[in-house]
Each structure stands twice: as structure tokens, then as C-alpha cells.
Design a binder for these strands. Structure first.
Lengths: 299, 299
DNA sequence: ATCCATCCATAGATATTATCAATAGCTATG
DNA sequence: CATAGCTATTGATAATATCTATGGATGGAT
């Protein structure tokens, strides 16, 4: 497989015609014929069905097409990005699926706004898969937990959170600074089904003989926040999630936390990664410092 | 630029050494040297800084790296996907940014679950950009509105919705089947800031001399739904958004709707696109038919 | 200091091949 | 049947990817 062959291939797809594709590629028509023939030989299938006066893609050709497009696109992007003094334009970000989405999407949105010309693409996955993607170069940077094995990756911790009790500010608990776990027995609770620490929290409750009354289950933090603020129940949440109308209090007997940071390959650190790291580090985690007005509630 | 040169480049990056990279690539060491030299000449920069006993990537090299990785990855993927009878494995989906996210993410999630081996990547954008991406082959399929100009694209309408009044089921309106617009004057309302029809709705209200009292603004449908169900205000919403505790009623004097469907290039229709289209068509739009249990609330 | 091992660059030769011009073969159309 | 429009084949040629052999540079070992 060769790049020039893929260029021929695309030219034929786009002109629908070997001869015109040859013109467009500034080569003779036989050159194109043999080029495609070689490509077909290597792939072991025909790519075009040559009927009289009309050629069309075969199923194999249709399968090749998106790859060919991507490859040619990448070649052009590489040329224009490598040599010039132009800034880097593409951040491929890996995202831990269990991470708190709202705050991270605020970070990514703000970064995108601050660097309007940068293309950001996001892939979600589990921690192990993110590491694999980093190794394979499928992503540039990952937002994930610190990897256990040392493997050529740099880690910069960004955020750390503890799980606390979310209550409406109008609740009688709101004036207190620490809630004994035992007082939560039989109270109405919301369950954040997507939270990866939820099982640990449930265990902690059970060990203390406390059984909350689960009123709702949801896999979305916004919904949970809105329902807590509307007074439908309490909820254990990362202290970084917050909203007007909600107070977060530590619970005596619960000390569960997580931390998350940026991961990238040491050898492949570049301007863009550095700039994203700096942005993320200085990006306020707590809502009063967060710049994303769209996520704020307004009267 | 040539594929073999990029392979050499990657081999050097991964071995950190010309000689070992040559072994790994089954060529002689001078072959590698001249290959890289040529690549450097074409790109107009050096890619490696050759210090004694130690080579490292230059900034230009670091910029090239992700492109090179993508290109080689795509070449391999193309080979393994084109010839064999293997099913297609990658769906590049374009998503209209103003589309109702919740329902669409349910569709995509369900499709991903049903075809566990398929990689799905999503790009969001405005309608015009989605069309451009389709043309450039950056996405396979787009979920968007019907394009105005005929341009080699197929369109299959999937969903159509009208904007209706969302109220809590406990509300006094709930027993009625049609609400006159005039009755909404001065009532508490939520504003869905991200909704692209919101300005048209606001105009309709204003034309009728009705001025609702905006209590909250949010850019997230879940939050809006939760707040309506908690009784904090009413909201104009697509009738496809629904949740327990919420009723949707038509408003007399408001007849605003939208429709959305799949877009793809006629000439590039393939197994995967067909299968996604069939899945999307048969995927229940209304919640009682939707298969995604994660999005449902449970007591 | 000297020698040696390691590593990358250069030179010249060779086999491969991308390309070309010319032409043959095919198929609709008038 | 002739013609126009298209792709495939052929044989020649220029370009080049690769090879072996060698030079030059550097750092560690004796």
C-alpha cells in the first residue's frame, strides 16, 4: 500500500473516471490503471467494478474509502503542521468513563473556547484502555487516575475529591459542620448509579448499620443535584459537584476520596500538551472560579 | 511523504535507535538513515536531534508523531477490513449540536451495546459543518436535519417532534388536553438556553402578548425535566423528552416542530451504514419503547 | 592515552518500480 | 458499421529504495 495509490483511488472516486482522475493527478491514465491494479492486488479484492462507461465502488472499495480519506487527510495535516511555525491544532483527549463529567466538560469547553482553532476529539474508556490508547498514540492526553505500573507516562494530578453529603441549603442539617453517620439512617436518599465509589459508600453505610431509603436512582449528576436542591432526598456526592441551593457536609465515619489527573507519554510531550496541562492546572475546579457561565444557574 | 518512511520514523521513535529500528523493520541501517533524511527534506525540518549515543525527537518530530501513528494505524485497519469478510468495525458519527442529546445518546448507546465490536466516534457540529465532514469523509453518517441543497446525500428521517408544554403530573393543567396560550401569562417558566427553537417559541409567546416569568435557565434537558417534575416551573420542550412525573400538553396557538434524520453519502453506503440506519429506524423513539434502562428512573 | 564498541552518515552499485507514449480492446451510440 | 469514450497492456526509461562497504564521531574500558 502506498500513499500515491490512495491518492489515485480517491481521485477516481471523486471524478468517477480513470481518465479524468489521471488529469487531476497530473499523471497518465495507464499510470493510474496500474496503480489501482497494484492496490487491488495487495488488498486481494477489486475496488471498482468496471462496467462499460461507468465505474463504481465495490463493497471492498467502500470499505477502503474512509481509511483512504483519513490517511490522505492526515498526510496533508502532518505537512502543514510539522514544518511551519503554526501552532498545534488537534488535541485527542481520552476520558475516564467514571470521572465526574460535568466539571471535566467545563474544562474542555473552556479550553476549546480559549483556543478556538484547536480541534478537540474525545474518546471515553476505562483506565486500562486509556493507557493502551496512549501507548498506541490514539490519544494525546488522558484524564484518568494515576497508573499503577510505571510505563513511560507522566502524571499530573489535577483534582482530588472527597465524598460528602449533599443537602438542600434549607435543610436542618445545613447549619452543622459534621453529620454523624448514624443520623442518616432511614432518610430519603438518591443513588448515583454511575458512580464508581458508590459500592464503597454503600459498604460503609452497611458496616455502620445505617440503611438509607433509596428514593431515586439516576446516572446523571445534574439530575441528582436538581433533585437534592428540590428537597426530594439527600445524596453522597463528590465535593466538587455543587450548585446553588445545595450544601455539602462531611459525614463522620465516611472518609472516601478519589483523585484524577492528566496522563501523557513523556517522550511525546509537546506545546499543545503543555498548554493543555497548564490550562487544566490553572482552571478553577471549584464553581466560583469556574469560567463556564453556561453551566451556572441564573435567576 | 511515503508510508515506509513513516514506518521507519515510528520504528525509530519506539526503539530510540536507528540500528535497532532497522532490524525491527527488516532493512539495513543506511536505508533507514536515507529514508528519514528524505522525510526530513520533504518536511523541511529535522525530526530527530542526533546527539552522541542518544537521539530524541525534535519539536517537529513530536508534531509529526500522532499523524504518523494515525496513518499507520489506518493502513493496517484498511488492510484487515477491506479484504476479509470481516464486518465493518468503525462508525464515525456526526451529531447536530442542537439535537436532543438524551434520546440520541440512548440510540448510540444501544447500538454500541448491540454491536460490541464496533468502535464509535462522535463529532459534534452545526448542520453545515456536518455536511462538510460528510463530503470530506471525516464522518460516515450524520444525525442532522434534512439538507436544503441536493448534494449526493441520502436522508432518512428518523424522528419528528413538536414543542409542547411540560408540567408536573400533579399540576392542575394535567387533566386538560389543550392549554390556551393566554393562560400561560405570568406563570413560572424554565428556559432551555441550548434549544435552537427557543427564539421561535419566545417570539410566539411575545406575539400573543404572553410573558412568562423565567425562573431558571439551563442548557441541560435533564436538569430542566427534574426541575419541572419538582414543581419549580413549566417549560416548553420537545414532546420526545419525557420522564415520570411529567406530562406534556399541546398549547393552543403554538405549532412548532422539528425533524431529524440520518445523512450519508449515496455513493458510500455500506453494510455498517445500512445496519445503523435500520437500527435507528427500528429503535423506539418514545420512552416506553426505548431500551436503555440506565436512563429510566426507578423507585 | 589508547583502543574498542557503538552508532549514524555517506558513497557507489544494483534491483525494483513508477511513470510514460503508444496501442489494443471493449462498449455504448448514432 | 464507424466513431467516441474509456480502460488495460506493452515495452522502454528514468527514478529510487535498498544493499554492502566504509568513514567519522563519541563514550567507555583497559
Amino acid at each position: 500500500m502506498d500513499i500515491y495509490q490512495l491518492r489515485y483511488f480517491l481521485a477516481i472516486v471523486e471524478t468517477g473516471n480513470f481518465s479524468r482522475a489521471a488529469e487531476r493527478s497530473f499523471v497518465s491514465q495507464p499510470t493510474l490503471s496500474t496503480g489501482i491494479k497494484k492496490l487491488e492486488a495487495e488488498l486481494g479484492t477489486t475496488l471498482f467494478s468496471r462496467e462499460a462507461r461507468k465505474i463504481s465502488l465495490t463493497e471492498a472499495g467502500r470499505r477502503l474509502l474512509p481509511h483512504a480519506r483519513t490517511i490522505i487527510y492526515e498526510c496533508n495535516a502532518a505537512k502543514s503542521e510539522v514544518s511551519r511555525r503554526s501552532p498545534l491544532r488537534r488535541l485527542q483527549l481520552g476520558l475516564l468513563r467514571t470521572a465526574p463529567t460535568q466539571r471535566i466538560s467545563a474544562l474542555v469547553n473552556d479550553f476549546a473556547k480559549a483556543h478556538g482553532d484547536i480541534q478537540i476529539s474525545i474518546k471515553e474508556g476505562a483506565a486500562a484502555q486509556l493507557q493502551r490508547w496512549l501507548d498506541e498514540g490514539r490519544v494525546n492526553v488522558a484524564l484518568s487516575i494515576r497508573p499503577e505500573t510505571e510505563s513511560g507516562l507522566s502524571f499530573a494530578r489535577l483534582y482530588r475529591w472527597k465524598y460528602m453529603l449533599a443537602i438542600p441549603t434549607s435543610h436542618s442539617f445545613a447549619s452543622r459542620s459534621l453529620i454523624p453517620l448514624a443520623e442518616l439512617d432511614r432518610l430519603d436518599f438518591l443513588h448515583r448509579t454511575h458512580c464508581e465509589a458508590e459500592s464503597e459508600l454503600t459498604r460503609a453505610f452497611a458496616n455502620a448499620g445505617v440503611s438509607p431509603n433509596i428514593v431515586f436512582r439516576t446516572d446523571q449528576d445534574d439530575k441528582a443535584l436538581a433533585l437534592v436542591s428540590a428537597g426530594l432526598g439527600l445524596c453522597m456526592m463528590p465535593d466538587i459537584l455543587s450548585a446553588p441551593g445545595i450544601a455539602l457536609l462531611p459525614v463522620d465515619g465516611i472518609n472516601i476520596g478519589r483523585s484524577i489527573g492528566l496522563l501523557w507519554r513523556k517522550t511525546e510531550e509537546n506545546d499543545l500538551i503543555r498548554s493543555f496541562q497548564m490550562f487544566a492546572t490553572s482552571h478553577g475546579w471549584y464553581p466560583e472560579r469556574s469560567g463556564n457561565k453556561n453551566l451556572a444557574w441564573a435567576r
